[in-house]
Nucleic acid binder design. Structure first.
Lengths: 198, 198, 198, 198
DNA sequence: TATGAATGAGGCTTCATTCAT
DNA sequence: AATGAATGAAGCCTCATTCAT
């Protein structure tokens, strides 16, 4: 009988430690030794769970995406009108800015780390999951969803580069304004489904 | 009799080589040796122009920002109405996506590289220069300019992570639509100055 | 109720797996994990049978030598004349070249592995067993046996380094030729024998 | 102007240090750190001259082969009769046993280190050079040269595995005896060219 | 200025071995 | 007896940087 360790739980613990370090200083700055130390294990133990450094990253993205989606879907305001949904989205954003910024920065960094499509595949997968999740929250799809996602990415990027640069409250007001105007153009406050642009 | 070299010209050549490499694989992947080789000089020569690697990055950002601003201001459609200005901005965007994406990715990478505010200062400086330049092009300021800049950053980020993700033509139509609606709300096509949100 | 396993049988199975791996890539390339995996047991199990890696090697040599000698002695053409014995030796050689080459290479590798005479002892023991066995097969002793053994080792070495280098048929003819001439010189009976090298 | 170092001379010095270590404990035991230390340089310096460890081995084989051949050809007894040539060969052997044994062991070790023919190519090249050199010394060719080479390899192998195993004087006497008998079979003491087998 | 040899810390990874179960 | 998680030293190699020329 082997040493009693919940393999999957250990894996997750290691991935969490990894994310912490990746988020701080980026992929390269997070050395295997540091990750191991942060997780309280030896270097060798790391390799017991992951064959190499890139695969840690891949596993981490997978875990986080899965978790995030689950978390978001748990608190979906299913029948609310769009403005309330927008408010919910911004509330989520505000609560998780640091985390989301870190994730995005990491995604961008990884994306160029290897021209081989290997590492890019799971970043795209994650990205699309988040896009779908956002569209579900907003209750909007089509072009408007694309635009909203773009704006969201922009607000994360902007906030990362210049912490004093973007006022999220202002952004929310703006988005509400856009929605109102686009919905009005379609003939009244649309509840939860309207794709207005197209 | 020293070799006749225009010091500043050589410096720029080195910075251009640096950018090329940084853009390809990021800051870490661009080793001093590779930079030197790409510029056709020896490692030692590089250190005659820059004291260390971070300072190359700083100098590079400075050079590029300066250049870009000059370039943009040279072709400003000074008296055009906003829709034409939007079109001009997107035209510029389309012509320089790759370059702008690289620049943005690099900025984000650099931003994390050193927690010391040393490296972050010039990234913020650059960012603000671009933001101002964009506002000048659009002939818009205040909140609307902020929002436009956010959206612009988002489109670059999005396009980097998922090349098939965002249709720039669609984005342009959307932006034009937003402008029309916001301008209409204010009572007519505002020519070149309108801060509409607020 | 312990798992019913024949301890000695398991040991042999482990040693066979070891030899397979040693033969493929040498001593260093055969890691304990690979050996365990090849034998279908866990790393820990390996250590129940052998205290460490060198001792696996020692045990393996011992087992193989014992086996080989037994095998050879079983088919000794006890009363045949020398030329027939030479033919038998070469037949054996041809059937087991790969095995013998691997064994020899391994012996040489091991020999250097530890300057301490610990590991060298059993290699010498094995070597002498083989030399005796060969002398028995040939029915020759003294200097001639030494020379034959030298030649035999040479043919294995040669064949290992250059698979197209040595024609065993030619070698056999040559050896028969040498025997004929030496026997003739001694006035001994040279019965039904092969031609000389010419 | 760079630091004044004779690149080729340094390379040779590094290769000599490498051989010393390789000869002692084999390829794997000779770590890059040890090689560097033995040569009195840093690890990094080693990589200035050789891209990686295998290439050190390759370069070393090339250097040694070249050197040995040159050395041997310098002292060729051009017009001597075969028995004198045999004596010369054994004299050379006796003077260089340790070196030759090390070389041979190394060749065998390397040979199996990588199944890819990359590393094997230069071993075969070296081997054939030595074979040709030996044939030139002996003034013999064809089958007899092959057999002599085989015997020579065998004597090195034998001596490596069992230092008390083979008496080189005895071996020489034997080889002279073989030659005499084969030459006699052809009709008299052939001077310096005799291919007796063929 | 310019060259390129040299340094040495540190990165990723492997591996024999130990140990809790 | 058996399992497999864990250790940590050590291997190969890279890289920013320095220095003799």
């Amino acid at each position: 009988m082997p040493k009693i360790v919940d393999h999957d739980k250990q894996r997750e613990a290691l991935l969490d430690a990894s994310f912490r370090l990746f988020a701080e200083g980026g992929y390269d700055a997070a050395t295997m030794r540091k990750i191991a130390a942060a997780a309280g294990v030896s270097t060798g133990a790391l390799y017991h769970y992951f064959p190499d450094k890139p695969s840690i990253l891949a596993a981490m993205f997978d875990l986080l995406t899965r978790r995030d989606i689950a978390r978001v879907q748990g608190q979906l305001p299913l029948e609310a009108p769009v403005p309330a949904r927008i408010a919910a989205l911004f509330a989520f954003l505000r609560e998780n800015v640091e985390y989301l910024r870190a994730l995005l920065s990491l995604a961008l960094e990884v994306y160029r780390h290897e021209p081989g499509s290997a590492s890019r595949a799971y970043v795209q997968t994650a990205l699309r999951s988040y896009r779908t999740a956002m569209a579900d929250i907003l209750g909007v799809d089509g072009t408007l969803a694309e635009m909203a996602f773009t704006f969201l990415l922009g607000s994360l990027t902007y906030g990362t580069l210049d912490p004093d640069g973007l006022d999220l409250a202002q952004a929310e007001t703006f988005v509400q304004g856009v929605w109102t105007r686009f919905a009005a153009a379609q003939g009244g406050p649309v509840p939860a489904s309207g794709s207005a642009a197209g």
